[in-house]
């Protein structure tokens, strides 16, 4: 039998994938800061309702439209509800809508992209032309159109935002699939007799995973913004709920008199989207440096 050569073999120290990822990510200072900010939002979304100083739904007609003070950090609204508490409680709703719609869009888009990229030919052409049609509409207009068909409501906002996320995921995953498909180890897997579905889901998909994660982070910001916009237009969350977009929408009439009503919801949307974008940039630099342009 062949000589066992392993005794003197050099063996690079086994470094976990996660560990080497963390080691590289830690150098992206702003991205790390954004990551912690996002974690904070997640924590708020989970435990927010039990730590807020005031009940976000209880009106207090003695303190209506008050500016920021130590008692009410972000002031109160036209019913005297504490804006700060409402923002914290609203995190769950706004993030939830954003995350679920992007995840939905990502799953559908990834499957389409994998199929399109791997099979090519007419399958690819059909899927990509349909995506082009969707790309031709401005995002928000498309969402409004979908809601016009499905009717308003949070659930339909999720579906609408998910639908306009599908083509962009499909296109990115298709591009990556085209690249991975040509790699030698895919050919090697074909040569042992693997089926197409095995190759696509066991071999091609894991290679596209980091691209998907990066794209997911970046699109999450846009999705939160879109959901907020739809709520602002009165097509999403009910105006009385503490959704950030709905809060903005309600405060429109008081813009001149109570600036803080517009400012704080706007600020938190801005910070969330900004942090997600920075985090996405950082992730891309680490996970998928080639796609940088």
């Amino acid at each position: 039998m062949a000589e066992i050569v392993t005794k003197t073999d050099y063996m690079p120290k086994s470094r976990g994938k996660l560990r080497s990822f963390c080691a590289a990510f830690i150098h992206k200072k702003t991205a790390v800061a954004s990551f912690f900010f996002f974690c904070l939002l997640i924590i708020l979304a989970l435990i927010g309702p039990s730590i807020v100083p005031y009940n976000p739904q209880t009106p207090d007609y003695n303190h209506v439209l008050q500016g920021p003070s130590w008692l009410h950090l972000a002031g109160t609204d036209e019913y005297g509800r504490d804006v700060f508490s409402r923002l914290i409680v609203g995190t769950r709703l706004s993030l939830g809508v954003g995350i679920s719609s992007v995840l939905l869009g990502a799953v559908a888009g990834t499957i389409l992209g994998l199929i399109s990229g791997y099979f090519g030919k007419w399958v690819d052409k059909t899927i990509m032309r349909i995506c082009d049609v969707f790309f031709a509409f401005p995002d928000i207009l498309l969402a409004i159109g979908i809601i016009a068909i499905l009717g308003p409501g949070l659930q339909n906002v999720v579906i609408a935002v998910a639908i306009f996320n599908i083509p962009s995921f499909a296109r990115v995953v298709r591009g990556k699939t085209l690249e991975v498909k040509e790699m030698l180890f895919i050919e090697a897997t074909r040569s042992i007799g693997a089926t197409k579905s095995r190759i696509i889901f066991k071999h091609v998909f894991p290679e596209t995973f980091s691209t998907i994660i990066v794209y997911l982070t970046m699109n999450l910001g846009t999705a939160i913004l879109a959901a907020a916009s739809l709520s602002f237009l009165g097509l999403g969350a009910s105006p009385s709920s503490s959704d950030w977009g709905a809060m903005l929408s309600m405060s429109r009439d008081y813009m001149g008199t109570a600036f803080h009503l517009v400012f704080f919801p706007g600020l938190i949307i801005f910070l969330t989207v900004l942090s997600l974008n920075i985090m996405g940039d950082g992730l891309r630099d680490v996970l998928d440096p080639k796609s940088k342009d």
Binding site: L184, A188, G193, T195, H203, E207
Partner: peptide
């Protein structure tokens, strides 16, 4: 049909770095 034909007919590739799945 080719998938079953390939069982008794296997390949070894040139580039040992690229022919094994990295994940």
């Amino acid at each position: 049909a080719w998938r079953s034909y390939r069982k008794p007919m296997q390949m070894i590739f040139q580039d040992p770095y690229a022919s094994l799945s990295p994940r």
